[in-house]
Design a protein around this nucleic acid. Sequence first.
DNA 1: TTGAAAGCGCTAACAC
DNA 2: GTGTTAGCGCTTTCAA
Lengths: 355, 355
Amino acid sequence: MVTLPETLPETLPIPIKVMASIRDVARHVGCSTSTVSRVINARDGVDPETRRKVLETVELLGYRPNLIAQGLRVRRGKLIGLVLPEGSAHVFSVIIQCTLEAAYQRGYNIIIVNSHEDPDLEERYIQDLLRRNINGIIFSRVSDESRVVSRIVDEKIPMVVIDRALEHEHVSNVVLDNYKAGYLAGRHLTALGHRRVACVTGPMKIALCRERLKGFRDALAEAATTLTVDCIFEGGFQFQSGLEAVQTLLERRTGCTAIWAMNDMMALGVMKGLYRNRLKVPDDMSVMGMDDHEFGSMTAPSLTSIHYPFNELAERAVEIVARQIESPGTGAETVVLEPGLTIRHSTARVKEPVT
Amino acid sequence: MVTLPETLPETLPIPIKVMASIRDVARHVGCSTSTVSRVINARDGVDPETRRKVLETVELLGYRPNLIAQGLRVRRGKLIGLVLPEGSAHVFSVIIQCTLEAAYQRGYNIIIVNSHEDPDLEERYIQDLLRRNINGIIFSRVSDESRVVSRIVDEKIPMVVIDRALEHEHVSNVVLDNYKAGYLAGRHLTALGHRRVACVTGPMKIALCRERLKGFRDALAEAATTLTVDCIFEGGFQFQSGLEAVQTLLERRTGCTAIWAMNDMMALGVMKGLYRNRLKVPDDMSVMGMDDHEFGSMTAPSLTSIHYPFNELAERAVEIVARQIESPGTGAETVVLEPGLTIRHSTARVKEPVT
DNA sequence: TTGAAAGCGCTAACAC
DNA sequence: GTGTTAGCGCTTTCAA
């Protein structure tokens, strides 16, 4: 007579789990979890035959290690934090896209937070990232006084600052050669014969704006002309600044034949301002931007711009963080990117050469 | 005579940890970790005095629970996955921004993956999200045949599909009233006196394009006119489509006085195409877009558009996922958003009323 | 070459 | 009211 077993048999059929765990693999192979762990982490000291069976089972069960558990055990969660100062500006969209791409190439995920340029929010969000055992941080536009930098450095978390440089022994930088960007802009305009030229800058308290301006000035100087004070308008990187710049410059009757704005948003503002004043681009005025945002090719006319290699920026930033995560000894480094010149239809040869 | 203790004293000074753990708090208070856990999770059955001390210490040590550990223990990692079909399209930038914002409001972080409309990548990235014990998923543009949907449903992970609807018992939707969007566009143009009107659609295999077109048609019908076949151009939502549409429509000599494109990118293409043909907007042709992307206000002339409430889209999507995460019983639901009409300067009253 | 056991930081069932 | 214990899924000594 057959009696019912008191308890269910020990070895149930492989449970229909949606996500297989390391134990499922071990059970299936008939070895311990440590052995499985050794195999999937490519440790040596595993019998080739066992290794084969494990790999086979991993494949069969579609097993992938749980990153949360890995992250908890050995800070190896393959997670990078991306901290941006604001969400609306369109360059950040580009940076986000490029960083996501670059990170996935290397098997990392990205968590994005948006500090809104608010030190308190910044601190809170960094806190959140640390709570997730983040492995590295890519930071855009940290202010020099930022309280969080030391936090991150203390936690020994690799950090790279992009776009704006930050001087710190343990922090890497990926920045643009801003002097050269300004220089290229200036030279393009003087090469087209422009001699009276205007510039819509970003906030001059920001170092990179001063560098860009210096490069721009030097290029003009090479063409034996100067950027006069009345031809400089300090903007705030917003569309609105471009609009205001045009109004101001026209009222000043500077006689300029070309305007360079330090980003594409302001350049669009300049184009719009000129349109409102019934001035034609580039016939009456050449307009040039910076960043080489995709939208520049969609306007009428399309926008000549200084190319900012955002994908390279992201690529290098991720590369550095990943390297520092994977081989902790590596020191901080600084990468300087080369700007380019994208000529479209908003700039043209000056009509009447200045006498 | 004093003997040296065999081992170090049990109560060491609080270790100088950068991130305090629950044990640090417990040690400092002199209670067990469970008590601390109870307090921080607002469970009752804790002496008010103890609770006070714990909270005080939490404050003092700046303790915040580690989300990785929480996520491992009780699938409560406050993490939502956002799956997008492509990175370049500009509406997705907007969706990203809005979703990040909405999620942070509720204490969630977002991990974004980009499927590039590739089912294999999609599957791999979803896999990655699951490996992170994601609590919920916001999905844009899943195809109906997507293999991953059942995976996610099987894992009982709350899922909401945005922008394009997906019929599934356990999947929520947040979509636009696309019929109404088309209707509003049509009515705006007929109200301006336009009778010969063209439409640049998206791929007609996509249901929402057909709905938009239907609404557009119905609005024209109300004004006793029809959308003739030669005035329809099927685009692919890209800038380029708008460019091609203009070329085609002009060659066909349809005599149209207004064009509606089913997104702003194509509308910009239309404007550019008209510019190249020396046609003035809106004098020679009214142009209208859809999405109401910020760039529409920066072009010259600025672009009239159908407003797509992306922030509401994100807000509702996050709200639904969060609710389903926090109270698992909740069933799937569908939200239909109202489109709006943003009138700018690319549309104007028709010059010569049709006889 | 392999397995048992401890532990990452946390929560929940069960004692006391 | 509070502490002890076990365990989430994984890696890593240590011992066999």
